[in-house]
Design a protein around this nucleic acid. Structure first.
Length: 465
RNA sequence: GGCCCCUUCGUCUAGCCUGGCCCAGGACGUAGCCCUCUCAAGGCUAAAACACGGGUUCAAAUCCCGUAGGGGCUACCA
C-alpha cells in the first residue's frame, strides 16, 4: 500500500509556524516514501472560517514549497457525505438524535461546576423536548466502561478509560460535522495511511477510534508530534508576536531556511544541522522524531537563515532582494552590480531585510555622513590623504591591483597604517564606519562615483576647517 | 478537578529501545583568543545539562517505582 498523508488546517487564520511544521512533516513523510500528500481544509466551524484564511494558508504552503498531490478539498463541500454517514449510524443504533440545546447544556455545565462536580452528559436528556421539526444534534453512543487503546507511532500504546468519554456530538445542529467526525470520514475516504498531527489531538484519538469502530473502518497509523512552544514555555501563539509564515517571508527569511529550521525542531539526524531539501526527503523518517515539546528559538533561525543567504548563489539572492528594493523606492537593477552588492552584504546579513536596510549608500545620489563618523575620520589630517588618494586613483588604473597600489603608496609616504587610511575612505564612500571591505566597495561603486564621493569628502573637510 | 503526554547545557538536540565506549557529544546563543581596513564571516578555546527521590545491577542518562514541574484534552473549536 502506498503512503498517503494529509495536512488538514482549519482556515481560522493564516498558516502559522506550528501548522507549517506539521505540514512539513507530512510532506516529507509522503515524499520520502514516494507517496501522496493531500491538502484538506477543515472549515466546519462556520463562525471562524474565512476565505481569506484559505488563501493565506495556500500562499504559505506555496512559498514553503510544500506541493500537494490532491486537493485542496473542503469539508464544507462534503456535508452530504457526513450527513449520510451519520444517518447510517443512527440507523444502526450507534448514534442518536439529541434535542438538548447547547444553551441548556451550558447552563447545566455551569451548575455542575458551581456544585464542584464534574459535568457529565447524560444520555437520558437526549429526548427531552423532542418534537417533530425541532433542531437536533447527532451524538455517538459510546461505551460506558472498558478501555480504549490507541497505538501511536511515537509513543506506543496509550490507554484511555471509556467512562471518561461522553456521548459526544458528531453532527451539529447546523448540519455540519464536528471535527472528530469529519476527520474520520475524510481520512478513511481519502485513504490516508498515516496521520501525523499535533500532540493536542492525542486525547481526541480515542473518540475517533470509537467512530472508526462504529463505522467498521480501520484506523490509519497515528503519530502525534509535540507542540512548538514560545520562549515562555507556553504553546506558541500570537502572544509571542507574529507567527504567521508569511510574516517570515516579508521579514526576509528564505523558505529553505525556515523548512530546515522547523524540521530540526523535533526531528534530528545525528549532529547534522543543515540539510538540502533532497537530504531532508531522503533522511526523514518517524524514527528520528522526538517526543518532547520544542521552544521556538529565533536566534538559531537567524543563524540558519544567514547561512543560507551566504551559501546561495548571489544571483538568486539578488532576485529576491530586488522587489524589496523597488518597494522601498530604491532604484536598483538586476545585474552584476546588484549581485556584487548582495554577495558582500549577504556575508553580513541574517535576513534579506538586513541587506535591504544596509544597501542605501550604494544607490544614493548623494550620501549623508554620519555625524560621529565624520567628526572622527573626516579631519584636516585625513583630508590630505584623501586628496592624495583621489589624485592617484584618477591617474591610475581602477583595478584591484591598482587600488591596492594606491593605498600602499599613501601608507608608505605618510607613514599611515591601513586602518588610518581605510576608515576615512569608508566614511567618504559610505557615510559610515561599517561596510564591506573598502576595495570591494570601491569596485562596486566604480571609478567615477568613487572620485565624486572622495571629492565631496575633501570639500566637506575644507569647508568645516 | 479528572484523564493523557512530556522532562539531557539558557535554547534545539545526540546518546536511552539493545545498561559499561558518557566525569555526557554536536549546534545556536554567550565569553575569550586568532584572523583583520570597519562590521561580519571563518578558525580555536571556555563556561554551561542527564528534574528530584527511591530501587534493580559489579555497573544507570540509559531498566523499574514514586514525586515534582511543564504541556494538552475535558465544546454543537479544530
Amino acid at each position: 500500500m502506498t503512503v498517503r498523508t494529509r495536512f488538514a488546517p482549519s482556515p481560522t487564520g493564516s498558516l502559522h509556524i506550528g501548522g507549517a511544521r506539521t505540514a512539513i512533516f507530512n510532506w516529507l513523510f509522503a515524499r520520502h516514501y514516494g507517496g501522496a500528500f493531500v491538502l484538506r481544509i477543515e472549515d466546519t466551524d462556520r463562525e471562524r472560517s474565512t476565505e481569506e484564511s484559505i488563501d493565506e494558508i495556500i500562499a504559505g504552503m506555496t512559498w514553503l514549497g510544500l506541493d500537494w498531490d490532491e486537493g485542496p478539498f473542503r469539508q464544507s463541500d462534503r456535508l452530504d457525505v457526513y450527513k449520510s454517514l451519520a444517518g447510517k449510524l443512527i440507523e444502526s443504533g450507534d448514534a442518536y438524535r439529541c434535542y438538548v440545546s447547547s444553551e441548556e447544556l451550558e447552563a447545566r455545565r455551569k451548575e455542575a461546576q458551581e456544585r464542584g462536580e464534574v459535568f457529565r452528559y447524560r444520555r437520558e436528556w437526549a429526548e427531552v423536548n423532542a418534537a417533530p421539526g425541532k433542531p437536533y444534534a447527532v451524538r455517538l453512543r459510546t461505551p460506558d466502561e472498558g478501555a480504549i487503546e490507541v497505538t501511536d507511532l511515537l509513543r506506543g500504546v496509550v490507554r484511555f478509560d471509556a467512562a471518561d468519554i461522553d456521548d459526544f456530538v458528531i453532527l451539529k445542529t447546523d448540519g455540519f460535522p464536528t471535527y472528530n467526525f469529519a476527520v474520520v470520514a475524510d481520512d478513511s475516504e481519502m485513504n490516508i495511511t498515516h496521520v501525523i498531527r499535533g500532540d493536542d489531538h492525542l486525547t481526541n484519538t480515542p473518540r475517533q477510534a470509537l467512530i472508526y469502530k462504529a463505522l467498521s473502518l480501520d484506523m490509519p497509523e497515528m503519530a502525534h508530534v509535540s507542540m512548538i512552544l514560545g520562549p515562555d514555555g507556553k504553546r506558541l501563539s500570537k502572544r509571542h508576536g507574529d507567527t504567521s509564515v508569511i510574516a517570515y517571508r516579508d521579514q526576509g527569511y528564505l523558505p529553505d531556511a525556515l523548512v530546515n529550521y522547523l524540521t530540526r525542531l523535533g526531528w534530528s539526524f545525528g549532529d547534522q544541522e543543515i540539510f538540502t531539501r533532497e537530504e531532508l526527503v531522503g533522511k526523514f523518517t518517524l524514527d528520528n522524531v522526538g517526543k518532547s515539546a520544542a521552544v521556538f528559538n529565533m536566534e538559531k533561525l537567524d543563524w540558519l537563515n544567514g547561512w543560507y543567504i551566504r551559501n546561495r548563489p548571489a544571483g538568486e539572492i539578488a532576485a529576491l532582494v530586488l522587489p524589496m528594493l523597488k518597494e522601498r523606492g530604491i532604484n536598483a537593477e538586476p545585474g552584476r552590480k546588484l549581485e556584487m552588492i548582495v554577495k558582500e552584504l549577504g556575508q553580513r546579513a541574517k535576513t534579506l531585510l538586513d541587506i535591504v536596510n544596509s544597501i542605501g549608500y550604494f544607490y544614493a545620489d548623494e550620501i549623508t555622513f554620519d555625524e560621529k563618523a565624520a567628526a572622527k575620520f573626516l579631519t584636516p589630517e585625513t583630508g590630505e590623504a584623501l586628496r592624495d588618494l583621489t589624485e592617484r586613483l584618477a591617474a591610475g588604473e581602477f583595478t584591484g591591483d591598482g587600488l591596492h597600489a594606491a593605498f600602499e603608496k599613501i601608507m608608505e609616504e605618510r607613514g599611515m597604517k591601513m586602518g588610518a587610511v581605510a576608515q576615512p575612505v569608508r566614511v567618504a564612500l559610505t557615510g559610515g564606519t561599517v561596510s564591506p571591505g573598502i576595495f570591494e566597495v570601491m569596485e562596486i561603486l566604480g571609478k567615477e562615483e568613487v572620485l565624486k564621493r572622495l571629492g565631496r569628502a575633501v570639500a566637506y573637510i575644507s569647508e568645516k576647517g
